[in-house]
Design a protein around this nucleic acid. Structure first.
Length: 321
DNA sequence: AACTATAGCAACCGCAAGGCT
DNA sequence: TAGCCTTGCGGTTGCTATAGT
């Protein structure tokens, strides 16, 4: 695989695009479509390489690009997606219509990353930083309402939500630990009952995790209120596991919800797509749908694989994902 | 008002994947 | 099947605007 020769010509212009160049590019594409980026600059009378034209079009000139500040929902979605997908910006951007990978990447690096660091959360792992100074700082903030009063309310709100996001990660891990360490027999994988193969014959698990915010339980057994010894002050999280897989909704005070924390892709989890779709419609949440779609791809499988790897020893019989 | 530091973002660079011949 | 070519992606750079001194 050789290097692309498209930008070898040193006579080609680089740097910021002028309005005239933009106009030429837009006019050409509107008239002729994109075709080959390689040949486009010549045809459009632009002294640029095809790569530069493609970048300018996809990141700036495309008509469906959404400009302006990222909303709270978008921000939360980016954080959730990043916790699963990592720095795969193009994949993340696929879940945010009108946003480009470059824009999301920049937003992450300039805003979210700093925010998470300030809150003592490692932006790479989405886990609390082990740096004691940071933990101290954050706990001092939690215990100092007079400081909290001086904070921007939106930032504080976001901080709590981010902590709640982390609770979901912890909850997932804890659930798997419980499943693995329980008396549950890990049945061999079967086409008809893949979820049962993972979860065993019991059809209902419950547990609590750390965090702020609430995961409600749509399952048959309501959660008892937790006391302070069970986690962070006034905070708890729980998940609910049915025989169809894992489920749970993360309710922020905004009413937004996270989708079911399903165990793998539909073809391996045994979850009825129609049922999932129904739940998505019921919640009427774009974030739910996005998460749902996300869980359909291979990322979820590798994500759970990673968790299982962390929670070994595993039974000798392999589990299919 | 001038200078410096920092933040935000557009654009570039280089690698890798995948299509085509 | 191998090699070339194009496109896509993620990391990084560097310019511009703004804030701080």
């Amino acid at each position: 695989m050789g290097r692309s020769p498209c930008c070898d010509d040193s006579n080609l212009k680089k740097g910021p695009w002028t309005p005239e160049e933009d106009q030429k590019l837009v006019d050409y594409i509107n008239k002729n479509g994109i075709g080959s980026w390689k040949s486009l600059p010549k045809l459009a009378c632009l002294n640029r390489c095809g790569k530069s034209c493609r970048l300018r079009w996809t990141n700036y000139l495309r008509p469906d690009i959404k400009r302006g500040k990222f909303s709270e929902d978008e921000e939360r979605l980016i954080i959730n997606l990043h916790s699963v997908l990592g720095n795969r910006w193009s994949r993340i951007s696929a879940h945010l219509p009108g946003r480009t990978d470059n824009e999301i990447k920049n937003f992450w690096n300039t805003h979210i990353r700093k925010k998470l660091l300030q809150m003592g959360i490692d932006p790479n792992t989405h886990k609390p930083r082990t740096d004691l100074n940071h933990l101290l700082t954050f706990s001092q903030l939690l215990c100092a309402p007079q400081i909290g009063n001086s904070l921007n309310l939106n930032s504080w709100d976001t901080a709590l939500k981010l902590q709640a996001d982390h609770a979901v990660q912890l909850a997932k891990l804890k659930l798997l630990l419980q499943v693995i360490n329980s008396n549950t027999v890990l049945l061999p994988y079967t086409e008809s009952t893949p979820a049962a193969a993972l979860l065993g014959s019991q059809n209902h698990y419950q547990f609590e995790g750390l965090g702020n915010g609430i995961i409600s339980t749509p399952g048959p057994t309501p959660l008892p209120p937790l006391n302070e010894s069970q986690g962070f002050e006034n905070s708890w999280a729980s998940l609910d596991v049915h025989d169809k897989g894992l489920s749970g909704y993360f309710d922020f005070e905004t009413g937004n919800s996270l989708p079911a924390l399903v165990s793998g892709s539909p073809e391996t989890s045994g979850i009825d797509n129609n049922q999932v779709e129904t739940e998505a419609n019921t919640n009427n949440s774009s974030i739910f749908k996005t998460w749902d779609k996300l869980m359909d791809d291979e990322a979820s499988a590798s994500y759970w694989k990673d968790i299982l790897a962390m929670t070994s020893p595993l039974p000798s019989s392999p589990i299919s994902w």
